[in-house]
Design a protein around this nucleic acid. Structure first.
Lengths: 229, 229, 229, 229
DNA sequence: AATGAATGAGCCTTCATTCAT
DNA sequence: GATGAATGAAGGCTCATTCAT
C-alpha cells in the first residue's frame, strides 16, 4: 500500500482464459481470506496457499497486496449487489421496502457464501479502513446510502435530507452491522447462536420490525409536532 | 500472550512518585495506542516512543505486550465504570434509566478523553478479539449485559430472559457501537460530523428515543397479542 | 523449536544447480556453527553471515532455527555414518571389531573435516540437550548403542544385556567423548596436542588397547568367578 | 565478561557480617544455578530470584556476572577439595589410592549436595570454557592432574611424565566425566538410572576396577617389552 | 548497603515484496 | 505466464548491565 505510484504493476493478463484462471483462483481465495480476516491480518501467503499458486503470483497479477484487495473488492461488488440489491421504488410501499433492505443487507453480512463476501469486505473496511475506503464511499456507499435514506425517509415521513432521516438510517444500519462485526462477543454473551439462513432472516426481520415500530412512532410524533405549530 | 504464569511481572511501584511514573506513562501511552489501533496493530515500539521510555521497560513492568494490554484494560476499567455507570433500579422509571444508559454508554465510546478509552478498548475487542475477550466477557460484559437486559425488559414489558428482550438489547447496543466502530465511514458519508460532548449526547438521546419508540410499540404489540390469545 | 507442525518448510529445491545452492550453503554454515557452538549459542545471524545469505532465508528454507538444526543433523548423519560406520559381525573376531569401532568413533569426533560434524553435533547434544535429543536417541543412538554393546559383550564374554557389558561400553565411550568435549582443557593441561588424522588414530588405538586389556581381564575374572561357584 | 578492566567492580563488602549475608545467599544460589546450567545459560535473574535479593545486588557485590562466577568457583573450591581430596602417598599402595580417587572424583560430579558443586563447575568449564578456564587450569587442575598422573603412574609402572601415564590418566578421567556431562543421554539410552550415593559409588568402583585391570595388563606388557629388549 | 527502575544491544521470527529464471 | 528463491524492514522479547536513590 505504497502512496507513491506503482511502477511494476502489470495490466490485466493478456490471455485471461489461460488455464481456468490462476488469477481467478487468487481472487476467490483472496475474497475468502479478506472477508474473514480483514486487509491487514490477511497474509499473501495464506491467500496463495488456498489458491494453490506461487507466492509471487499476486505480485505478478496484481502488483501488490493492496491492489489485489482493490480488485477483490470490485470483483465481488457486482455479485453482491446483484444478489442482494438495495433499491428504492418511489411508488412502492415503504414498509416492505425496508423489510427487504434489512433482509438483503443482513444476508450480505451473515451468509457464509461467496456473494456475501462483498458485504463483509465493506463491513471490515468500516472497522479497519484502508485507503480504498475513500473510493468505496464515493463509488459504492454513497449511492446506496442515498437509497437507504430514501427508504427510511419514506417510512418516517421526513425528507431524505433531514437530520431525522439520517439518524434513523444510521440506527438501522448499526443494528445490522453489529451482528456481524461483533459476532465474537455476541456468541460469548449469548451462547448458542446459530447462523443458518433461516435464523439470519429472523434477525433481519426483527431489526426491521424494531425499526419500523420506531419509525412509525417518530413519524407520528413529527406530524403531531408539525400540527401543533 | 503466553499461557504460562508470568513470574516476572511487577506489582505497582513502591515509589509511586518516582519521576511522574514511567509505569503510568506507559499505561497512558498504551491506552492511547491500543484504543486507537487495537491490540495487534499497536506496537510496543510506538507505545514506548510515546511514553518516552526504553523498549525493555514494558517487559520489566508488565512482562509482555499482552500483559500490558490486560493491565491497560483493568487500569481504565475503573475510571470508565465510575464515570459512566450502568445501573438498574427496580423501583425507578424504565424510560429515564434507558436514556441514562444510552448517554453513558455513548460517552464511553465517543468522548475523546481518557476515561472513554475503556469503552473503546472493549469496542476494539469486539471487532478483533484477543484471549482477553473471554475474561472481559466473564468479569465485565456479562454483568453489564444483565443490567442492560433488565432496563430493556422493563421498557418492553417482557422478562429479561426472553428472546424479545435479548433482541431489543442487541439492537440498542448495535446502534451505539456502530457510531464508534464505523466512525471512519460515517464521517465520510455524512461529512461535517462533530464529536463535542453536546453532540455526542444528542446522538445518545436520539438512539434512546428511537429505541424507546420501538420498545413501546413492541410492548403494545406483545400485550395485544397476549390478549388476543 | 515449536511443537506444532511446520507447514511452511520447503522440500529440497527443484533447481538444485541454482547458483551453488543457497540452501546447501546454509546447511554447510549451520553445520559449522552448530558443531562449534551448540544449538543455543549459535545465532542465525552468524549462520547467515557465513553462508552469505539474507537472514530470512533460514525461515524460507527451513521454517525456523530449530528445524534448520534438525535438517543439519540428518544432512550430516548420512555422511558421518557412511564414512565412519559402526557394525558388528557375529562371525568376526571381537578384538579387531572393537579396534575399528574406536578408530571410527574417534575420527567422527576429532577429524576436522565436514563428515565429522555429525559426531560433534551429537556430542553437543549430549552436553546441551534440545528436544531433538529424544529423536536422535530413538532413531540413531539406540541402534548404535546396541551394536557397540554387542562388540563389547563379545570381548568381555558376557551377554549384551548384562550390567557388565553396559558398564564396559559406557567406559569405552566415555574415554573417547572426553577427548572431544573436553578438548579445551586437555589442550591446556597437556599443551602441544596435535589433531592430525595420524595422531587421532593413535588416540583411538590407545583407547582400544586400554579397554581391551580391561575387557580381557574382566572376562577372565568373570570366568574364574563362575568356575569357583 | 568484558575483556577490558572492570571500572565499577566493588571490593568485598565493608561490613561482611551484615544480615546473615546477602552476599552469601547469592553465592549459594549462584553455585546451584551455575552448577546446573553452566555459565552462559545461567541468568542473573534466576540467581537473584533464588537468593531472594535484588537483581542489582550481583552488580553491587561482584561487579558483573562473570566476576560472580569467579567468586563462586573459588568459594566452593575449598569445600570441594576438603570433602573429596585427591592425594598421592608415595608410600601407599597404588591400587587403593586409585580406587579412592575414583570414588571422590565421581562423588564430586554426581552427588547432589553443595560440596559437589565445585566439581560440577569444573566439569561445565571443560565443556563450555570461559576465560576463567585458564586460571582454573593453572591454580587448580594442573596440581590435581599431577597427582592423578602419579597415582596412575604408580599403578601402571611408568614414570608420571610418560606418554603412557598421560594416556591412561586421560582414559580414567574420561570415564567419569562422561557419566556427569552426558547424563542426559545415558538416562535416555539406559533408562532407569539411579543417582543415589550408593549407586554412584558403584559407578566409581566399576571405573576403578575396569581401569585397574587395564593398568595391570599394560604394566605387564610394558615390562615384558622392556625385558625383551 | 541495598534496591527498584531503566537501558540498549541482541535474538528469532514474520511479512510483503522483488529477483532471476 | 508463472515460479522458486531471496530480500530487508520490522516486530516482540530477553538479557546483563547501569542509573538514581
Amino acid at each position: 500500500m505504497k502512496t507513491a505510484a506503482k511502477p511494476r504493476r502489470r495490466a490485466a493478463p493478456r490471455h485471461p482464459a489461460h488455464d481456468a484462471g490462476t488469477r481467478d483462483r487468487i481472487l476467490e481465495a483472496a475474497g475468502e481470506v479478506f472477508a474473514a480476516e480483514g486487509f491487514r491480518r490477511a497474509t499473501v501467503r495464506e491467500i496463495c496457499a488456498r489458491a494453490k499458486v506461487n507466492i509471487a503470483a499476486i505480485n505478478y497479477h496484481f502488483g501488490d497486496k493492496y491492489e489485489l484487495y482493490r480488485e477483490v473488492f470490485s470483483h465481488f461488488a457486482r455479485a453482491g449487489i446483484e444478489q442482494y440489491p438495495v433499491t428504492f421504488d418511489p411508488g412502492g410501499k415503504p414498509e416492505p421496502q425496508l423489510r427487504a433492505f434489512c433482509r438483503n443487507f443482513t444476508r450480505r453480512l451473515l451468509d457464509p457464501g461467496r456473494p456475501a463476501w462483498h458485504g463483509r469486505l465493506i463491513a471490515r473496511e468500516m472497522v479497519e479502513p484502508t485507503p480504498l475506503l475513500d473510493e468505496i464511499v464515493k463509488s459504492f456507499m454513497r449511492p446506496q446510502w442515498e437509497t437507504i435514506l430514501r427508504i427510511v425517509a419514506a417510512n418516517v415521513g421526513a425528507p431524505p435530507g433531514s437530520e431525522l432521516a439520517r439518524r434513523c438510517a444510521t440506527s438501522l444500519i448499526g443494528q445490522m452491522l453489529f451482528q456481524h462485526n461483533c459476532r465474537a462477543v455476541i456468541d460469548r454473551v449469548q451462547p448458542g447462536q446459530e447462523y443458518t439462513p433461516e435464523e439470519n432472516d429472523r434477525r433481519a426481520a426483527f431489526v426491521a420490525e424494531f425499526s419500523l415500530a420506531a419509525l412509525r412512532a417518530l413519524r407520528g410524533a413529527a406530524k403531531r409536532k408539525a400540527v401543533a405549530r
